[in-house]
Simulated assay, not measured.
Amino acid sequence: MECKFFIYFLSLLIFFTDDLIGERKFFPNLPVGEYKLKFHGAFICNESINYPLFYNMHTSRVSETKTVLTGKYIAKIPFDDSLTLDLNMAVLDTVGGWKYNAFVYRHSNACSRLKKFMGEVWRTYLHSYEPISSDCPMGIGNYTMNGFDLSLLEKFNFPKQFYYGIYKLKIQYINKEDVPVGCLYIVLQFTRPWEYNV
């Protein structure tokens, strides 16, 4: 009899506790899913190399949720479709080292491919430079980037679900002789949407 009473009491407790708590929110801890991006920095790949496409970029946090890319871009050669776009992402592992080639993308026609990859953000990207470039190819000259909003990267033609973690994205442009002519690192974090402001 005592056992039946205990089970009955436990059932009532569970039933009413669920009603008092209300709707439970389930936050799965899966390794992949929809994401929000956090940016930790941007820097040149190798300062000792004088790249023909020289990116001296850095990130600036202008609000709690907005990070912009600013800096100088010096083009001694045109950025056009004679170059190859090479993207390589390294993931930060659990012991603090980088595991390279976590995501690799390489395609010819760098300017057109970057334009397609950026999608609707392409025009905003070009208008963040001074002087403003109109389209592919970007000509020779000295450009100043006046705050490209990096949150727009979420609108790129990139998978809308990805593996969570911190990545070091290497953006590299390669000429026909297979020599890098421009290189930039961006360190970013793919976070779960409910962990974004934590």
Rank of each mutant, 00 (worst) to 15 (best):
R24V: 08
L114W: 09
H127I: 00
D80Y: 07
D18F: 14
S48F: 04
T144C: 05
K4P: 00
A102G: 10
Y55S: 08
S11C: 14
T67I: 11
M1S: 12
E23R: 12
T144W: 09
V104K: 13
V95S: 15
V187R: 03
D19E: 07
V179M: 02
V198D: 14
V104R: 11
K25S: 04
F148A: 02
E120L: 10
L53D: 05
F156S: 06
L10E: 01
G139Y: 08
K160L: 02
L169Q: 13
L83T: 01
P159R: 08
L83E: 06
F158T: 03
V95A: 14
N175E: 05
S112E: 09
E130H: 11
K168W: 01
Y55F: 15
T67Y: 06
F103A: 11
F27T: 09
G147R: 02
Y129L: 15
V187P: 03
S134D: 12
P193G: 06
Y35A: 05
D86V: 09
N109Y: 11
S48W: 00
A102E: 12
N146K: 15
G96T: 08
Q189C: 02
F15T: 13
T67S: 07
S11A: 15
I44P: 10
F39A: 01
M138T: 14
L92V: 07
F6I: 12
E120M: 12
L13N: 15
R106V: 06
V68G: 07
L30M: 08
I44F: 07
V181D: 06
N46Q: 11
E120D: 15
L153C: 13
L69T: 00
G147K: 03
I49D: 09
I21C: 09
T59N: 04
C183P: 03
I174T: 07
V68Q: 01
P159V: 08
P78H: 04
F6W: 13
P131K: 06
P31N: 13
R106C: 00
V104Y: 14
V62E: 02
V91G: 03
W98K: 04
T191A: 08
F43Q: 10
E177V: 05
C45S: 10
I132D: 09
R113K: 12
P193T: 05
S133A: 15
S151T: 14
G33P: 06
I174Q: 03
L188H: 11
E177I: 00
M138A: 11
G141C: 10
R61T: 00
P28V: 00
K25T: 10
M89L: 12
E154C: 00
Y55G: 04
Y129G: 04
I44C: 13
N175P: 04
T17G: 13
V121S: 02
L114M: 15
K72G: 09
Y35G: 03
N50E: 12
I77N: 07
K116A: 13
L30T: 11
